[in-house]
Design a protein around this nucleic acid. Sequence first.
RNA 1: GGCGGUAUCGUCUAGAGGCCCAGGACACAGCCCUCUCAAGGCUGGAACACGGGUUCGAAUCCCGUUACCGCUACCA
Length: 476
Amino acid sequence: MSNRLRFAPSPTGYLHVGGARTALFNWLYVRRYGGQFLLRIEDTDRARSTEDSTRAIFEGLRWLGLQWDEEVSYQGANVARHQADARRLLESGHAYRDFTTPAELDRLRGEAEARGQAFRFDRRLADLPADEIDRRVARGDPFAIRFRVPEGETSWDDLVHGTITFPNKDVDDFVILRSDASPVYNFAVVSDDVDMRITLVMRGDDHISNTPKQVMLYRAMGHEPPRFAHLPMIHGMDGKKLSKRHGATAVGDYQHEGILPAAMCNFLALMGWSPGGDREIMSMDEMVSLFSAEGLLRKAAIFDTKKLEWMNGQYLALTPATELDPIVRPLVVASGLVTSAQLDARRDWWLSLLDLLRVRARTTHDIARQAATYFSDSVEYDPDAVAKHWKDPATAASILRATGDRLAATAWNAAAMEEALRKLAEELGVGGGKIFQPLRVALVGQLASPGIFDVLMVLGQEKSLARIQAAVERLG
RNA sequence: GGCGGUAUCGUCUAGAGGCCCAGGACACAGCCCUCUCAAGGCUGGAACACGGGUUCGAAUCCCGUUACCGCUACCA
């Protein structure tokens, strides 16, 4: 039988990195072992669900490259089936009507707490004579439908944890259909997973305690439960569940901070899974072929953005300029210094600039930021750079004047220019840095840049000479 | 409280009884390379939660303790 896995987020926010990781593993599993990867939006909680977050989930998944098979399903559209399933459970005796009101339940819970005891729902509370039940139903009294948990114990063979067993006595008769006839989460999930013919449920391990309930529901409904794999949580740097306090937690945040989707997937894959050995940087294809359920980890991982950025830097260095172009281009165009058409007109030049910058950037924003000076007409001088390399204006001006003269008389190629400037340094009796550094400030205004001859080449003769001239004037 | 889950450097992890007085990566520090910054190379500090077993031998198996996390809702 072919594998059918699903990712089932509730649209109550954005696509969380934890959710993205879960989606990624479901996707990897299907890619590796074959089958379908499905998406189900769990929007039964009308009050908290929004279309915006549904859209954010789609966008996040698409950005990461996790395309789902078949049509998206919406849990909210399945309520009629949930109700029918509940009714069937009622008829078969696996469930019963409970007329206890929520207020009464609250009272009982409060009393138990006051006594220092754990509140347990007592089935006898709902144990009414049949004619009394009929009378109340006829009268229209509200009731919830509760599942009758059987004697014994419930266990399953978890793909990541091995066998997990729960004594049934530890699980209360839980509500499956509220008095307003809306289904409760644990029930809707089972009804939907049965309907979608899900074979493996891979989700966060915060659902482990829900699993015995779901397994019992499958059996009561006459179905074999699917397999389960409970993935570890992702925590923030303080070891607590990742939340807004930890800063960026939505995959969209990272997209906007200039992280590449491939880097994000690679990083996420390493939270809760390891290919074994020392493998770290892996393309999507490599991850697919390396993925295995055996490599799934049990321990919660802490999300370390420092390592994500490092990894992104690795990807930037690995990604050809032609692939970076569509990502970085909108960023530099947004700076207003250049138009997309102008970039097209000098495409080779633009790609070579990207090549220069990508190897020393950690995010695509770093690239865009550093690219700005190559488009602008004037140079913005960083005060620190000026203080360091133009410390003595007169000396700086004279060196720059000499540099400019020499460059003007040299063929505009890196090798020739390097030879000329090194010769100049020798004549002046100084090290190369004494020339290159002031020159760097004149050309880009910054302490750091790509190699100075690369900068000269990419800036071009006219612009370079003009900037040197401008620097000399400013210093003089 | 009850039940369940987890436990290797600050962080991500390798490790499936001897190869481990524990390896790699991020971060940190130092050095090298070098026109700067990255990248790269080298070096350093840094961990098997604790206590009992089992075994000739345990990070690896068992038990207990502790800590953390989750569930314990007519939330999802």
